[in-house]
Simulated assay, not measured.
Amino acid sequence: MLERVNGLKRALAAGTPAIGVWCSLATPLTTEVIAGSGADWLLIDGEHSPNDLRSIVAQLQAAGAYPTCEPAVRLPSDDPNLIKQIMDGGARSLMVPNVRTADQARTIVAAMTYAPGGFRGFSVGHRANAFGRIRNYHATAREQQLLAVQVECETGVANAAAIAAVPGVDALFVGPGDLSTNMGAMGNPSAPQVQASIAQVLKAARSQGKAAGILAPQQADAERYLKAGFTMVAVGSDLGLLARGSDDLVARFKPR
């Protein structure tokens, strides 16, 4: 058995835009609905959603029925033990929040990589290698892995080019909420200083031949970022779709 090609990694390497949807509801059923939507990728959120290892694995299983949609997992931190567990559970596309330095990025890459290149713990059979069925998995695992590191503070912005230059980093992904908050503009990613930093991250990623990504749930923002050159763009979330859809539905029947 051969490992399935990571379509998201291939698209980003080619400079092709890849449209994604955040999955925050922590249930396999809603993740399965998103996976079948035609999205190029989805993000199972382990940082700000009530997910644990078992619920993440269950969502990876649900998304696996849709091979054209690559499921990525955002970890709550850069803890190597969490990286090992999530990867053994079948995630090969990872997003790590608040990466501030190139050294931090190098450690994350090492945690994803078997020796001698890194220190990912070795296990003969797990979900990532189809329980031992993928031929030469341990020697070739890095080929289909993708790492998107989130830039969410001024330190990360200042070090963005150095972070992007780290081998094994595939994308710099802007977290506009945290970035705006950390820059004194909470809830206002459109603030001029935040927009300047977002543009700086894009420039840094492109200078190193890496992709840039961002979460942009407003259509006008998403279209603007795509036009600017961002290619890993999340355009909404399951939570947002349900909340706005239910609000709109109920409002139609409420007295005005």
Results as ranks from 00 to 15, higher is better:
residue 70 E to M: 13
residue 244 R to K: 14
residue 254 K to N: 09
residue 93 S to C: 13
residue 127 R to V: 03
residue 215 L to K: 01
residue 24 S to K: 05
residue 148 A to R: 03
residue 89 G to T: 02
residue 205 A to D: 07
residue 94 L to Q: 05
residue 242 L to M: 15
residue 83 I to T: 04
residue 184 G to M: 10
residue 179 L to Q: 04
residue 248 D to P: 01
residue 70 E to D: 13
residue 186 M to N: 03
residue 220 A to D: 15
residue 177 G to F: 05
residue 214 I to S: 02
residue 169 V to R: 09
residue 34 I to S: 00
residue 113 T to R: 15
residue 190 S to Q: 14
residue 24 S to N: 14
residue 10 R to M: 09
residue 97 P to A: 13
residue 25 L to P: 00
residue 173 F to R: 02
residue 12 L to M: 14
residue 27 T to L: 06
residue 251 A to N: 15
residue 171 A to K: 02
residue 235 V to S: 00
residue 81 N to T: 07
residue 90 G to V: 01
residue 122 F to K: 07
residue 145 Q to Y: 05
residue 78 D to C: 08
residue 22 W to I: 04
residue 76 P to D: 13
residue 23 C to H: 05
residue 164 A to Y: 08
residue 88 D to T: 01
residue 208 Q to I: 07
residue 129 N to K: 03
residue 189 P to D: 05
residue 11 A to R: 15
residue 101 T to H: 12
residue 211 A to L: 07
residue 212 A to M: 05
residue 7 G to M: 08
residue 105 A to K: 09
residue 191 A to T: 07
residue 166 V to E: 08
residue 213 G to Y: 03
residue 4 R to Q: 13
residue 176 P to R: 01
residue 157 V to H: 11
residue 231 T to V: 13
residue 47 E to W: 08
residue 247 D to C: 06
residue 233 V to S: 00
residue 239 L to R: 10
residue 256 R to N: 12
residue 24 S to Y: 08
residue 219 Q to L: 14
residue 245 G to I: 09
residue 34 I to A: 15
residue 110 A to S: 14
residue 252 R to F: 07
residue 148 A to K: 04
residue 194 V to R: 00
residue 135 R to W: 10
residue 227 K to V: 02
residue 186 M to Q: 09
residue 47 E to A: 14
residue 50 P to W: 11
residue 10 R to I: 05
residue 55 S to V: 11
residue 96 V to R: 03
residue 41 W to E: 01
residue 163 I to H: 11
residue 9 K to Q: 10
residue 38 G to M: 08
residue 149 V to Q: 11
residue 12 L to C: 10
residue 248 D to C: 08
residue 41 W to Q: 01
residue 120 R to T: 04
residue 9 K to N: 05
residue 155 T to I: 14
residue 239 L to C: 04
residue 224 R to P: 00
residue 178 D to G: 07
residue 99 V to S: 08
residue 38 G to R: 07
residue 185 A to K: 04
residue 183 M to N: 04
residue 23 C to Q: 04
residue 142 R to Q: 14
residue 12 L to W: 06
residue 228 A to W: 02
residue 50 P to S: 12
residue 139 A to F: 10
residue 49 S to M: 10
residue 236 G to K: 01
residue 21 V to P: 00
residue 185 A to S: 13
residue 49 S to Y: 05
residue 13 A to M: 10
residue 187 G to E: 04
residue 190 S to T: 11
residue 132 G to C: 11
residue 155 T to E: 15
residue 135 R to C: 04
residue 43 L to T: 02
residue 56 I to T: 12
residue 218 Q to K: 13
residue 162 A to Q: 15
residue 194 V to A: 03
residue 128 A to W: 00
residue 245 G to Q: 12
residue 114 Y to V: 11
residue 46 G to N: 08
residue 165 A to N: 11
residue 226 L to G: 12
residue 209 G to D: 12
residue 176 P to K: 02
residue 133 R to I: 03
residue 64 G to H: 07
residue 95 M to P: 01
residue 1 M to L: 09
residue 31 T to R: 01
residue 41 W to A: 02
residue 41 W to C: 02
residue 255 P to E: 13
residue 223 E to V: 03
residue 231 T to C: 04
residue 131 F to D: 09
residue 50 P to E: 12
residue 103 D to A: 15
residue 60 L to T: 01
residue 62 A to M: 10
residue 120 R to G: 03
residue 161 A to E: 15
residue 97 P to C: 12
residue 216 A to V: 02
residue 171 A to P: 03
residue 1 M to W: 05
residue 68 T to N: 14
residue 77 S to A: 15
residue 5 V to N: 07
residue 128 A to G: 14
